[in-house]
Design a protein around this nucleic acid. Structure first.
Length: 422
RNA sequence: GGAGAAAUGGCAGAGUGGUCGAAUGCACUUGUCUUGAAAACAAGCGAGGGUCACACCUCCGGGGGUUCGAAUCCCUCUUUCUCCGCCA
């Protein structure tokens, strides 16, 4: 959530930044301020009543002690009325706060100044491209390669669970395991602390990172226990710090985790979902950082470079996009997408998304630190995929195919125990 | 799954109806002393709302209730511990 105080202090700024998302939030922002004024007013009145009640109660206590029963009874009578109206006011306050929270929850994060205006993916800005486009003599798409070399069985997954839940087999399974270990080892070298979080989360966690209520329909929901399967490890890792006051000396706090991720992907269809392009279950190593607000954007650049270094080591050509306001996630202030080129499909595939959330998540999480002046302040949160496996696998299979099989990148060979798939 | 016990500030741990946002110890911060450190001594030391700043209000696991008044009594949920059962 945006901070009410920020909206109050810099209305024009925030309003302007929000408009990058391709629609106006001015009315919503005004509504928030109005509700907050209402909240303050109600609370002030209520506080006055409670103060009076407290004073009377204290007096009654003293009267009883000194034996002045009649006086005490008279005072008691006085409280009845105050109590009545304070109860009513309390309800009003509760409603106002609820309305305020709802209004605030519906406003997305304000995009960073560098975010381009725009509504569609076509308006994303290409920041840089790296590596040569693959020139392939053989252009089998990865789903055909997967079948040819018996790496991934999509049909079998349908039998076990349903579409979008592939079964990896033999060298296909080993490639998965190799990539996960490679990514974790690289993360370790870059100072990320490895954690293994639960892959089911409760409602509070979903709210903390912004999946709830915004993306409720995108998550698998186990209604019996009211738990959700994680769509990304971002949720459990970031929620490690919900209701936590961290030490500013500890910044930046760097964690990572490998987890499977689950997405319902309601509404997807066609070539987007072919093969590994879009799955209901996939594997990902996620990196998450908590940062001092002054440093978060420097750290975002570092995270972006780190993700790029992984792609370089895997020998994949890629490009980096700065997402436009309309294509950016609800909670993000600035997002870089990394895309690798799929030589056989002849299209770009998103393999990573690196974002800075400023205080949008930490406000919901109540994730704070004591700043230089001894005041509580919300930390900045950042995260990125480093990396998501399926499309990396797709690109590796397609771009490295030869007459004699599929060559594996040098860096993976120690993890794989083989050099090529044939 | 069954039975019992418990949940208080960063930690430990008092507090069973009124002046308790909460004793005490540890930890932490600052100061005195010291060449420096330790020790000792002194002061400070939870969070949120509100205010120019005070005042004031809220919070003793969550929610609800009783009462003029609740950390303290009642209900309920959650979690933890002990015992039993089951089990990778």
């Amino acid at each position: 959530m945006l901070e009410v105080q920020h909206i109050r202090e810099d209305f024009e700024g925030i309003n302007g930044r929000l408009s990058k998302r391709g629609k106006s939030f001015e009315d919503a922002l005004n509504k928030v301020l109005e509700l907050d004024d209402q909240r303050k007013q109600t609370q002030t009145t209520l506080d006055g009543m409670l103060a009076e009640m407290n004073a009377i109660s204290k007096e009654i206590g003293i009267c009883f002690k000194s034996g002045k029963r009649d006086e005490a009874e008279a005072l008691k009578a006085k409280t009845v009325e105050i109590k009545e109206s304070s109860k009513q006011l309390e309800n009003t306050l509760k409603e106002t706060i609820e309305e305020l929270t709802n209004a605030l929850t519906q406003i997305p994060n304000a995009p960073h100044d560098s975010v381009p205006n725009g509504k569609t993916p076509e308006e994303n800005e290409i920041v840089l491209s790296h590596g040569d486009m693959p020139e392939l003599a053989h252009k089998l798409p990865h789903w055909e390669l997967a079948e040819k070399y018996d790496l991934i069985d999509f049909e079998l997954g349908v039998k076990i669970t349903g579409a979008g839940f592939p079964v990896y087999k033999g060298k296909g399974a080993r490639l998965q395991r190799a990539l996960i270990n490679f990514f974790l080892d690289e993360g370790l070298k870059h100072g990320y602390n490895e954690v293994q979080p639960p892959i089911f989360i409760n409602e509070a966690s979903g709210f903390g990172t912004g999946q709830l209520p915004d993306k409720e329909g995108q998550m698998y929901h186990m209604t019996v226990d009211n738990l959700f399967a994680i769509p990304t490890a971002e949720v459990p890792i970031t929620n490690l710090y919900r209701d936590v006051i961290v030490k500013k000396e500890d910044f930046p706090i760097k964690n990572m985790a490998y987890t499977p991720c689950f997405r319902r992907e309601a509404g997807s269809y066609g070539k987007d979902v072919r093969g590994l392009n879009r799955l209901h279950q996939f594997d990902k190593v996620e990196i998450v950082q908590l940062a001092h607000p002054d440093e978060s954007y420097t750290i975002l650049e570092e995270m972006s470079s780190y993700v790029q270094s992984l792609l370089q080591k895997l020998g994949l050509n890629y490009r980096v996009l700065r997402l436009c306001g309309g294509d950016m996630g609800f909670t993000s202030a600035l997002t870089y997408d990394m895309e690798v080129y799929s030589g056989a499909q002849e299209r770009w595939l998103e393999v990573s998304s690196v974002s800075c959330f400023e205080t949008y998540q930490s406000n919901r999480l109540k994730l704070r630190f004591k700043n230089e002046n001894g005041k509580m302040q919300y930390a900045h949160t950042l995260n990125g995929s480093a990396l998501a496996l399926p499309r990396i696998v797709a690109a590796l299979l397609e771009n490295n195919q030869t007459e004699n099989g599929i060559e594996m990148p040098e860096v993976l060979r120690p993890y794989l125990g083989f050099d090529r798939i044939d």
